[in-house]
Design a protein around this nucleic acid. Structure first.
Lengths: 123, 123
DNA sequence: ATAGAATACTTGGAATTCTAAGTTGTCAAG
DNA sequence: CTTGACAACTTAGAATTCCAAGTATTCTAT
């Protein structure tokens, strides 16, 4: 049931379910209880349950499938705190670093060619 | 208005408002149009607008104040894409770059060995 | 046994209504 | 001018209802 803590019911349910997902009680790929079951369990209307589900969906923890159910996303554990696309600035700097590394590789290749040829000659 | 793109109305509105927040059309601290105004603008019921607002609230972009309005959070621009732990893609690229650096280091070591041995001999 | 129809269940979206609580503006009285 | 009452507006939460679309199970006919 939803307690009178000043916290709205839908957020309490969302928090509850999020905790279960994070602790593994609701494993990745597992189905959440149906809306009807959650309504009974928490003694609230469907609109409250749906609002809670919507929060978790927006957080990326769950995904629903019409007619089938709502499931914990496979990457939900990571998604709880990770899994944001890297910002474009980070990606840009990574690209630059990869370019620098490639250039270094080429310069070293040139050195190798030169040095190891000289090694042969000097023998 | 909400278009018939297969995308639910509430998500279209949320996307629309999020874009405005990101592009600065809705500056941090600025008030969003009221629910009534958004209903008129998008020609939808209040429940659709509220659902859109709820999504943006869950994303941390906005905050509502009873009786007053819904406002863009001051840190909304940052919240949109920054301050998140690095994504798995970033971590993967970093790992690859570490490997590349190790390889380059080994090749340089071989070069140094060769070059400095020849230096000794040539004296 | 198999296929199709019917039924039950499910999510998702949307509309309508109501209540609670707060803010803002207007107007009348002092 | 100030203050208080009231109306209008606002967000937030919640309930109820309806519809669309899909899945799973059961039942019936072949």
């Amino acid at each position: 049931m939803v307690e009178k803590t000043g916290q709205p019911g839908y957020l309490q349910i969302a928090d509850d379910l999020r905790t279960q997902i994070r602790t593994g009680s609701l494993a990745p790929g597992a189905a959440l209880p149906s809306t009807a079951q959650l309504c009974k369990r928490y003694d609230v209307s469907a609109s409250v349950v749906k609002a809670a589900i919507s929060v978790l969906r927006t957080e990326g923890l769950i995904v629903g499938q019409q007619g089938k159910g709502v499931f914990v996303r496979e990457d939900a554990a990571a998604s709880a705190s990770e899994e944001e696309p890297a910002s474009s600035e980070v990606m840009e700097q990574l690209a630059q670093m990869r370019n620098t590394l490639a250039t270094l590789g080429e310069r070293i290749a040139e050195l190798e060619k030169t040095v190891f040829q000289e090694s042969k000659r000097s023998r």
